[in-house]
């Protein structure tokens, strides 16, 4: 038996240590291991002397009371959540359903009309005024450039289709006469 194995066995043991014959012989022959063993036994004895005062009945009663309060509070919360859900669950499901329906209705040809469209319109109206008042607006290259910029910035992919759908006849005529639509859109 080597000293390392013996010391490992000792330092991992707790309580009464069982030594087999080989270990007993080693202990008698090896001074270093004997010292280690004696020190360990002494340490164990000292550590066993470090007793703590156990939980008293009064302390337990106070702890139990606090535990009961916390458990009751937890149960009340769980029950109230359950009640809330059963009472308003149907309403919540209906609201959720309506929300999804409203989202779904925003899809057309695979393009999602998000708030960008609204923003686009807002910018457009802010920049160029209401369509009904566009009669005085001169349609020129700058006008078209701004219009295209607005649509591509706010709608990204498929902005061409959107633009074509929204153009007034005057705007369309201008584009047809002045620009190569294939290159732009």
């Amino acid at each position: 038996m080597d000293c390392g194995t013996f010391k490992n066995k000792i330092s991992q043991s707790v309580g009464s240590l069982f030594l087999d014959v080989d270990e007993k012989i080693h202990l008698e022959q090896c001074d270093q291991c004997r010292n280690f063993y004696e020190e360990y036994v002494s340490l164990e004895k000292e550590l066993n002397g470090l007793t703590i005062e156990p939980l008293s009945a009064v302390e337990f009663a106070s702890m139990q009371q606090k535990l009961d309060e916390n458990i009751n509070r937890y149960n009340r919360r769980a029950i109230s959540f359950y009640n809330l859900f059963t009472r308003y669950g149907a309403g919540l499901v209906a609201v959720g359903f309506l929300f999804f329906v409203s989202l779904w209705s925003g899809f057309e040809y695979g393009v999602y009309y998000s708030e960008h469209d609204i923003q686009s319109e807002t910018y457009y109206l802010a920049d160029y005024g209401d369509e009904s008042s566009d009669e005085d607006e001169t349609i020129n290259d700058e006008y078209i450039e701004l219009l295209l910029y607005d649509y591509t910035q706010n709608n990204g992919y498929n902005s061409g289709d959107l633009l074509l759908g929204d153009l007034t006849q005057d705007e369309f005529d201008f584009l047809e006469n002045n620009l190569d639509l294939g290159d732009i859109l």
Partner: peptide, 28 residues
Amino acid sequence: NKDKMFALTLRMTGDREAALDLTQDSFL
């Protein structure tokens, strides 16, 4: 299990009040 949990938490914290709180919290 109260005594075992209290002993462990007391030996870990060295503070009786804290050990009581931790034991209670563990059971919760």
